[in-house]
Computed example of a mutant assay.
Amino acid sequence: MSLPIEIEDLNVFYGDFRAVDGVSMTIAPNSVTALIGPSGCGKSTFLRTLNRMHEVIPGAYAEGTVKIDGQNIYGPGVDPVNVRRRVGMVFQKPNPFPTMSIAENVLAGVKLNNKRVSRAEADQIVEVSLRGANLWEEVKNRLNKPGGGLSGGQQQRLCIARTIAVKPEVVLMDEPASALDPISTLAIEDLIGELKKDYTIVIVTHNMQQAARVSDKTGFFNIAGTGTPGKLIEYDDTNTIFNSPANKQTEDYVSGRFG
């Protein structure tokens, strides 16, 4: 089930350094939200706060609220591990476990969550997840072969299958196609369009055309200079951001005048 995300006055710190300053936005369920902006503007850091992944870095913490289906994931007593079960993440570089088979890769998250499944249930999870990642037909006859033996685009879709196998409600993607060729990139973009039927999706991308193609809403992040925090400059429907943005900084960025 896809869920809404409400972010209010979110500040992210690495020790004494404020990396992201005062972000507020509401992300609708069953939608794709793209985060764009120059390198170092805090968009990937912000993305990681949505499932508390930034906390794996020593000294990192956040202030403000991130509510998923009304529950503040930074509230007292909230377990970050449970948050990450609900909010899955796909990283920039495909990272299948090289010593595991394709099927074992899909089931890795399920087993990590200490969920016991029968052989029949496992087979079903593998097929449903690979179908959900548009990979089943390509690998159904070699499920016991190493996941690392797939092409780059297939590996990334395998990682997406691994993510959705645990049935999250939100899927975060940090530049999921930046290391892929154009054909594999198109496959990932098509997949994102399919996945939003079941999930809330937030994607970081440096590819302006990709943001315009796949997202319903776009948030533009920027920094005033080196050493300053990233800020959300503008957040609106993707068509508005790319065709009639309200902020001059946004217009300059999407038109290629800087960044």
Rank of each mutant, 00 (worst) to 15 (best):
M1R: 12
L3E: 12
L3M: 14
P4C: 10
E8L: 10
D9G: 11
Y14L: 12
Y14H: 12
G15V: 11
D16W: 11
D16G: 07
D16T: 15
R18V: 06
R18N: 15
A19R: 05
G22R: 13
V23D: 03
V23S: 04
T26I: 12
I27G: 05
S31Q: 13
S31E: 15
V32I: 15
A34T: 05
L35R: 05
L35K: 07
I36G: 02
G37M: 05
G37F: 06
P38V: 09
P38S: 12
G40N: 04
L47H: 04
L50V: 07
M53K: 00
Y61Q: 11
E63W: 01
K67P: 11
D69Q: 09
Q71T: 14
N72Q: 11
G75M: 10
V83E: 04
R84K: 12
R84V: 03
R84N: 06
R84A: 03
V87T: 11
V90E: 02
F91Q: 02
F91T: 00
K93P: 00
K93N: 13
N95Q: 08
N95M: 05
P96Y: 04
P96H: 08
F97E: 03
P98K: 09
P98V: 06
P98Y: 08
T99N: 12
S101G: 14
I102S: 04
A103S: 15
E104C: 04
V106Q: 01
A108W: 05
N113I: 00
N114D: 14
R116T: 12
R119K: 15
R119L: 12
R119V: 14
A122L: 09
Q124R: 15
Q124C: 10
E127Y: 04
S129C: 07
R131E: 05
G132F: 02
E137D: 15
E137A: 11
K140M: 13
L150M: 10
S151P: 06
G152Y: 07
Q155A: 08
Q156F: 06
R157L: 03
R157A: 02
C159D: 02
C159T: 02
A165W: 00
V166T: 11
V166L: 06
E169G: 15
L172A: 07
M173E: 01
P176D: 00
A179D: 01
D181G: 03
L186Q: 14
A187R: 00
D190M: 13
D190C: 09
G193C: 10
L195Q: 03
K196H: 05
Y199L: 05
T200S: 08
T200C: 09
I201E: 01
I201Q: 01
I203Y: 02
I203V: 15
I203T: 08
I203P: 01
V204F: 00
H206N: 09
M208I: 12
Q210D: 07
A211M: 08
R213Q: 13
S215D: 06
T218Q: 04
G219L: 01
F220I: 07
F221L: 05
I223W: 03
I223C: 06
A224M: 13
G227W: 09
T228S: 13
G230C: 13
G230F: 10
I233S: 01
D236T: 04
D236F: 07
T238G: 06
T240M: 13
T240V: 15
N243E: 10
N243I: 06
N243M: 10
P245I: 01
A246Y: 11
A246C: 11
A246D: 13
T250M: 05
D252F: 14
D252P: 02
Y253W: 07
Y253L: 15
S255P: 00
G256P: 00
G256S: 05
F258C: 05
G259D: 11
